[in-house]
Design a protein around this nucleic acid. Structure first.
Lengths: 186, 186
DNA sequence: GTCTATACGCCGATAGAC
DNA sequence: GTCTATCGGCGTATAGAC
């Protein structure tokens, strides 16, 4: 892993832990072991480095989630696998977290990767819900896009509830709750 | 409104807009029109002032939501009124937002009001779901606490999706989605 | 490519006068 | 109660040597 890579990886960690506003170049340098000069040689500044970190996180997330949602099993089973996927729940979602960052939302460049990921996710889930309706797993009256948004929102909101309580319990309950609402386990 | 009040109100606004990490005493002073000396006369420092602001926001939120959930109508109707309540969706939830703040979550004092609100909310929704089951509105097989967590999470996650897209649409879809899953509108 | 030096304003607070 | 002065450290770079 070269210096630019180490800078990006350290930035990814810090963005996840502390957000954009809470992450300073100095903290990135300390964590990565790089020097001031290296950082400003490889990147134009904090926004540029954050963008590189965001892109890597989003690309990785999309690949991981895509693999889960494209796996074996019924539509319902794949949604359950996705929602119950092993996570460090109290750390929150490294992408969703950025939506609470005022400087990210205010910058079209910094918000773009976040928007892309969630738009893709909702589309992917929409198709999966429609597939489940075709196979008779889900009620035919459901709107696939609305249902997909509710599933994605439950996950993101589950992180909020868990962090509020410093406990995984509300997250697990929310996931169980949405899965139960989707229909009885066959 | 006296000086202490103006300091608290300005802090509430800034915590909502920029979070705890992103809010500086200087910004609070500028917005409130108070001077340095006033602030440190009325409050011991930034955490103390933030705590006062949090408490006021949480108290107000609880009163508002309690009124909606205690209003007229069936359990389902009251949940719908709550979820569809007029909101400036893109601003996000002033309480949920704080869960993404590392310094808030790391401090038992600063996290306490957030935890209290969400614990209260889930309890209130749990009772309402149980009420709806008793009246035959909701499926008897649902776990009320899990369902309540899913409802609360959908709302919080709806904000995340909306801010990611800079659009209210995913929020509205998520709300419609969870309401549809709760059962057909009579 | 990486290092050190330098800059200048903001952060969060304390001190002491009025 | 409120004001101004002062403080050491951090945030976010730029400059120029090696």
């Amino acid at each position: 892993m070269d210096t630019a890579d180490r800078l990006i990886e350290s930035t990814r960690e810090l963005l996840w832990e502390r957000g954009y506003v809470g992450t300073s170049p100095k903290a990135i340098l300390q964590r990565s072991g790089a020097g001031q000069g290296s950082m400003y040689h490889h990147f134009t500044g904090k926004p540029d480095l954050a963008l590189a970190a965001e892109r890597r996180t989003v690309d990785e997330m999309r690949a991981t989630v895509d693999a889960l949602l494209s796996g074996p099993g019924t539509a319902r089973e794949r949604i359950a696998v996705y929602l119950r996927r092993e996570r460090d729940v109290l750390r929150g979602c490294p992408v969703g977290r950025l939506t609470m960052d005022p400087d990210v939302v205010a910058s079209p460049e910094l918000r773009a990767p976040v928007e892309e990921l969630f738009t893709w996710l909702r589309g992917r889930l929409t198709a999966l819900v429609a597939e489940g309706q075709a196979s008779g797993e889900f009620a035919p009256g459901l709107d696939p896009a609305d249902t997909a948004a509710a599933i994605a929102a439950t996950l993101q909101g589950g992180y909020v509830l868990a962090r509020a309580s410093d406990s995984v319990e509300p997250f697990d309950r929310a996931v169980s709750g949405i899965l139960a609402l989707l229909g009885p386990t066959p």
